[in-house]
Computed example of a mutant assay.
Amino acid sequence: MHWRALLAAAVAVAAPGTLAAQLRFSCSQLVVDRLDPLVNPGQTPSPHLHQIVGGNAFNATMDPDQVDISEAATCTSCQFTEDFSNYWTAVLFFKARNGTYKRVSTIGNGLGYSASNGGQTVYYLSSGKVTAFKPGFRMVVGNPAYRSEADAKKNPALQFTCLASPMTRSGYRYDFPTTTCAGGIMVTVRFPTCWDGKNADSPDHQSHVAYPVNRNCPASHPVRIPEVFYETYWDTRPFNNKNLWPEDGSQPFVWSFGDRTGYGNHGDYIFGWKGDALQRAMDANCQSDLIQDRLNCPTLKSQSIAQANKCAVQRRVREDLDGWLKELPGAGAAMGGMK
C-alpha cells in the first residue's frame, strides 16, 4: 500500500473537494542531548534527555529576540533545505529485569526513509488556506506529568503504534504497547492547527494555539495554521527477548523523564523555515513524495537523505548515553510547569 493511502485518515478533516498540502519528509538525527531551549532555556543540562532533528542552530537558549535560527543555521538534517526548524521529543529507554537502562535508538521510517540515520518523519498538512508560522514561533504539545489515559486523552493526537511492519497504521493507543513489536514502536505527535493570531509563544508554550472544534477554529484562536505532525520509529527490536523483561511480564519501556506508562508523551517545535518558503509550499498545495531520492515540491529546495545525514551538532552535555546505565540521565527528572 502506498503511503498516501496510509495518510488518508490524517487529512480526512479537509472538506470534500478542498485542496490540501501534504508535505512529508525525513529529518535525520541531529543530536541526542539534555537541552531544552523552550522549557529550560539556558539550562545545561536540562532535567531530562531529548532527541532533536532539524537545523544546526539548536542550542540551550535560542532566544527569538536575539537570533533568527533560519539565518544562524548552516545546515539542516531535514530534506527540505529551507527548513531550519527544530523538532524534538523525549528519549525512550528500555529497563531490563536487573534494573539497568539502555537507550533505544531511532530508525528511519521504513515507508521510504530507511536510509535516514534515525530522527523523525515530519509532515506539514493543510485543509484549505493556512497561514504559515511567523519568525520566533514555538509550541509544545502534551504533558510529561500525565500518568492516566484520561489525562492523555486531553491530547488525543499523541499516540503509540506497535509496528508489525513499517506499513502498520492500526492499533493506536495512548500508552506503551504491552507486547513485543516486530517492527519497533512508532510514536506520533500532532500539534494544534489554530492560532490566536497574535502571540508567537505563551508562558506555557501551549495557550497561543488550540485544536479545532468540529473542524472549525474557536473564536479565541481564529487563524488556521499548518498541522505539524511527526512520526518517530523507536527501534525496540533488540529488546524483544522476554527474558530481559520484568518477571511479571509488564512492559519494560520508560521515557527519559521517568514515565513508564507512556501517557506523558509530548513534543516540542521551534519554527525556522527560511523566508516565505513554508507559505509558498502551503499555497502551492504541495503533495511531497520521495521520487528517486528527490521530493515532489518544485517551489522548495531539497537535499538527499545522505546529505541530510551529514548535518549534526556536538552533544553539549557529556554523559554516557550508550552503555547500560544504573539510572536515567538526570535520574529521569520531569520538567516543572506545564511540561
Rank of each mutant, 00 (worst) to 15 (best):
A90Y: 11
N40P: 07
Q29Y: 14
A72P: 00
L35D: 04
Y113V: 10
G42V: 12
A96H: 09
G112Q: 08
V32T: 14
G55H: 11
Y124Q: 14
L35V: 12
S46A: 15
Q29C: 08
S127D: 15
M62V: 02
G110D: 03
E82C: 04
C75W: 04
V31T: 14
S77N: 06
G119M: 09
A9L: 09
T89M: 07
V91Q: 08
L92N: 07
Q29F: 07
P47C: 09
C75A: 05
L125M: 15
V53Q: 04
N109S: 12
G110N: 12
C78L: 08
S105P: 00
D33Q: 06
E82D: 12
T100I: 07
A72L: 03
N86V: 02
P45W: 00
G128F: 04
S85Q: 00
G55Q: 03
S116R: 06
A57H: 04
P37S: 04
S116A: 15
A90D: 12
D68A: 02
D68I: 01
L111Y: 05
I107E: 09
L6K: 13
G42N: 13
N40F: 11
F25K: 02
S126E: 10
L125H: 13
G108V: 08
G118Y: 06
V104L: 03
A60Q: 14
M62E: 06
S127T: 10
T100E: 12
C75I: 02
A57K: 01
L6N: 08
Q29W: 13
Q51E: 13
F58C: 04
V13F: 15
E82Q: 12
V39Q: 10
S126F: 05
S77W: 11
P16R: 04
L92M: 14
G54C: 05
A15Q: 15
S116T: 12
A60F: 11
L111W: 02
N59S: 12
T89A: 11
A96N: 10
R103Q: 07
G99E: 05
A20Y: 09
A72Y: 03
C78F: 02
R24T: 15
A14Q: 08
T44V: 14
A72N: 09
H48C: 10
Y101T: 01
A96V: 00
M62N: 12
P64C: 01
